[in-house]
Amino acid sequence: MRVTVNDNELEVELLGPEGAPVVIACHGAPGLGSRAEPRASFGRLADSYRVLVYDARGSGVSEGKGPFTHEQWAADVEGLREWVGAERVVLAGGSYGGFMAMEYAVRHPDRVLALVLRDTSPDNANEDMARANALATRRVDLDLEKFGRIMDGRTRDDADLKECWREILPLYDHVYDPAKVEEKVEATHYRYETHNWAFTENMPRYDLKDRLPSLTCPVLVTVGRDDWITPVACSETIARLVPHARLVVFEKSGHSPQVEEAEAWTACVRGFLDEVVGAGAPAGRG
């Protein structure tokens, strides 16, 4: 469904029973990601939770009015919380979606029941780690020009973003499957302007380390052992900074344990939420 939030139409899906605790799940990869990934992963919890997934401003099939700042994207999450009518919500996100879940939580701590983070980072230190991991890989021979354009936010148009995405996708999974890579390439919505903004404007300034210790909500941090782009060290930093955060490392996963170890990851997230939120708890109304 189309929902207008802050003068921008977003494509939104609501899954699960009315009245259940609300989970807002943020997708990663601005300009490349969409609601499809959080729908597949958090949709598994829709038997007990009210799950809201959406294409962020400038991604998927949502409208793309700028700016594509963290401030604007966090404000859009707040608009979605108000629209769904929940006083407090669980915020979830993987990769760049984890950046946004944390950005929202430090801005609106009174609105967050719990945080579920996957393969993410508290600052931009992951970028240097990712570059080193990519250059050290023996999996594929990287075209360093394409690699540089996508990492630096210098893609030329949607077609170029597609080719650069194809170049780095082999790095993501624990087990490389060229057929799956090509399937992902063709399934992606490409919005190069959003991607470029995220990596030229937002990432150089991204650093939440000094604000994370103020969080008081329960926090689950999950990560794949072989994650190349937001390595385990990034999740360890989050877990160290956030009081009482829980860290779970999935040993047979790359950047996507919600896919590569789906059953174990889902059981981990469900167990955490059932404990700290309770599937039978009311969502609350604003």
Rank of each mutant, 00 (worst) to 15 (best):
G19M: 03
M1I: 12
T4Y: 08
A25Q: 03
F68V: 03
L273T: 04
F68H: 09
L144H: 15
P109M: 06
S253A: 15
A75E: 13
E263P: 00
L115Q: 00
H70S: 05
Y206A: 01
G66A: 06
E201T: 06
P231M: 13
P204S: 13
G66C: 04
T194H: 08
R39L: 14
P231H: 12
D119T: 11
P243V: 09
A279V: 09
D227C: 07
T137V: 12
A40K: 10
R131S: 02
S235D: 02
R154W: 00
S121D: 10
G31R: 07
V140W: 12
N126D: 13
V116L: 09
Q258S: 14
E11W: 07
G286E: 04
N6R: 14
R205E: 11
V249S: 01
E18Y: 01
V90E: 05
R131N: 01
L52W: 07
L212Q: 07
V53M: 05
T137M: 14
L32V: 06
G98C: 09
L32R: 05
M203E: 13
A239N: 06
W197M: 00
W165Q: 04
V23T: 05
E193K: 11
E263L: 04
E201Q: 10
V181Q: 13
E103Y: 02
E63N: 09
G224A: 07
D157G: 11
A36P: 00
D177V: 15
D210L: 11
V5P: 07
R240C: 00
A125L: 04
F99P: 01
H70F: 14
Y190K: 07
A279K: 14
P21K: 07
P38E: 03
E87G: 14
V185R: 12
A159N: 02
W83R: 14
T216V: 09
F68A: 06
V77M: 14
S253M: 05
